[in-house]
Design a protein around this nucleic acid. Structure first.
Length: 471
RNA sequence: GUCCCCAUCGUCUAGCGGUUAGGACACCGCCCUUUCACGGCGGUAACCGGGGUUCAAGUCCCCGUGGGGACGCCA
């Protein structure tokens, strides 16, 4: 039998970081065992499901590179099938109609709470024989009254729940539409899922689902409940509490692989390894090794992981991901006409950017002239001696025929010697003059990339500016 | 309140009866240095508490405590 897993989000918001992790685990488990991975959209709540959310989820999966072999499958397209199974259960007596009103139910729950009991359905209609006309009804699953349900969870180990803790859950609403726990069971069975990997907030649903599966006479799949991700405040990360959509991580400048890498290491490890390629993830991942405890999301670590990728990925790949940010920041790369190649610029900057967003922002001066100098930088590095220093550099640079790092460096040194100044006096001013900021790669590299034409022009401007400043 | 899950440095983790309790992020020093970074070296820092079991417990059991989750005609 082919191993099959699924990711089954409800389209009530974007794909957030917690969902992304369970999706990753499911995906990895399937890929590792040459199985199949299915994307199923659980949209039975028609009130809250939106097409925008469906799109966002698919976009997120796509960005992360979590490809699926089947899907997206929409539950709303399977209502006939659910109705069929409900009829079957009604017929075989494993489900029944319940005529209790919401008010009655609320009253029962309230009383139970007051009595310090776990609120649950009291089974009032469980053995009801009549079928009153004109009364609204829901359909409930007839859960066993006695005995234990045992979950052999791949992550948590054995979990035992007594059926007395469970109640008869509603499987079809008054309007006839099926509910979550039921559709999950039907789908997981129909779609021949062998492994159910999901968040551990579903542990409480599992025994009910197992009971339904058993009632339908089918084999129970394997379960793996992954722990939650907590925010800095120790609270569970959710859409309404601190969790941002995965696309936000693209916007913030992270590589999808870095996000995956971070998510994987959050709750799982392989010896002392921190960085995993996609292939290594698939090869080394074992669902049994996922930590059973919840873990706290740590942005600093994610940044560090991202840095590792920015430092080591092939330049072409970085450029690919960088393009979105260049567009976003309105920077057009025109190579040629004395402009540096993006390749060379990335190579020069990759070690000093934490994110693609930073990288994009930091390379603007190669392709665009700046209007003004960074205020602090100019204040700190443009002194009274600056015009003379810059003029000296300008004169020497003008003489360079072969504009390259080696020759540039030589001339900077010549200026230092001639003016009897240390690099510390010359360098910073030169940097501000040609980049407008106080930070850049080493000067000869920076100047080389900026090109002779623009370097000279900017020096001229800077001489003027600094002269005016001290006039 | 009831049920379920969980518990090693601030954070992510290794550990699967005998370890100087290891690694990573972060943090703090030092080195490198024309800026910002990178990098290198070093350092601070943890077994929630109490009972057992055992020659021996971070590792196994129980009880607390703490945190998380679930108790919907949401998923």
């Amino acid at each position: 039998m082919t191993l099959r897993t699924r990711f089954a989000p409800s389209p009530t918001g974007y794909l957030h970081i917690g969902g992304a992790r369970t999706a990753l685990y499911s995906w990895l488990h399937a890929r590792k065992h040459n199985g199949q991975f299915v994307l199923r959209i659980e949209d039975t709540d028609r009130e809250r499901s939106t097409q925008a959310s469906v799109d966002a989820i698919i976009e997120g999966m796509d960005w992360l590179g979590l490809d699926y072999d089947e899907g997206p499958i929409f539950q709303t397209e399977r209502f006939d099938r659910y109705a069929e199974v409900i009829d079957q259960m009604l017929e075989q007596g494993t489900a029944y109609r319940c005529y209790c009103t919401r008010d009655e139910l609320d009253a029962v729950r309230e009383a139970q709470r007051a009595n310090k009991e776990k609120p649950r359905y009291n089974g009032k209609c469980r053995d009801r024989k009549d079928t009153p006309e004109g009364l609204d009804s829901v359909i409930r699953f007839k859960n066993p009254l006695e005995g234990d349900v045992i979950i052999d969870d791949l992550i948590k180990g054995q979990i035992v729940i007594n059926n007395r803790e469970l109640d008869d859950l509603i499987i079809a609403r008054t309007d006839g539409t099926p509910t979550y726990n039921f559709t999950v069971v039907v789908d997981d069975l129909d779609m021949e899922m062998t492994h159910i990997i999901r968040g551990d907030d579903h542990i409480n649903n599992t025994p009910r689902q197992i009971n339904m599966i058993t009632a339908l006479g089918k084999d129970v799949p394997k379960y793996a409940h992954a722990p939650m991700i907590l925010g800095d405040d120790g609270k569970r990360l959710s859409k309404r509490h601190g969790a941002v959509g995965v696309m936000q991580y693209r916007d913030d400048g992270y590589f999808p692989q870095a996000v995956l890498n971070y998510l994987l290491r959050l709750g799982w490890s392989h010896e002392d390894q921190e960085i995993f390629s996609r292939e290594e993830m698939i090869e080394l991942f074992k669902i049994e090794n996922v930590n059973g405890a919840a873990s706290t999301f740590n942005t600093k670590k994610l940044i560090w992981v991202n840095e590792q990728y920015i430092k080591t990925l092939p330049v072409a790949e970085i450029a690919e991901h960088l393009q979105w940010h260049l567009d976003d920041q309105g920077l057009t790369i025109v190579e040629g006409d004395d402009f540096p190649t993006l390749h060379d610029v990335i190579e020069a900057h990759r070690d000093r950017a934490k994110t693609l967003k930073e990288l994009a922002a930091g390379i603007r001066y190669y392709y665009q002239d700046f209007e003004s100098y960074d205020e602090n930088a100019a204040k700190k590095h443009f002194k009274t001696a600056t015009p003379a220093i810059l003029q000296n550099l300008l004169d020497k640079f003008s003489q360079i025929e072969d504009w390259n790092a080696q020759n540039i460096e030589t001339e900077i040194k010549n200026t230092c010697e001639e003016l009897e100044l240390g690099m510390g006096k010359v360098g910073p001013a030169l940097r501000v003059a040609v980049t407008g900021t106080a930070m850049s790669p080493s000067l000869e590299v920076t100047l080389d990339l900026i090109g002779k034409k623009r370097s000279l022009a900017r020096l001229e401007k800077a001489v003027e500016f600094a002269t005016a400043k001290y006039a």
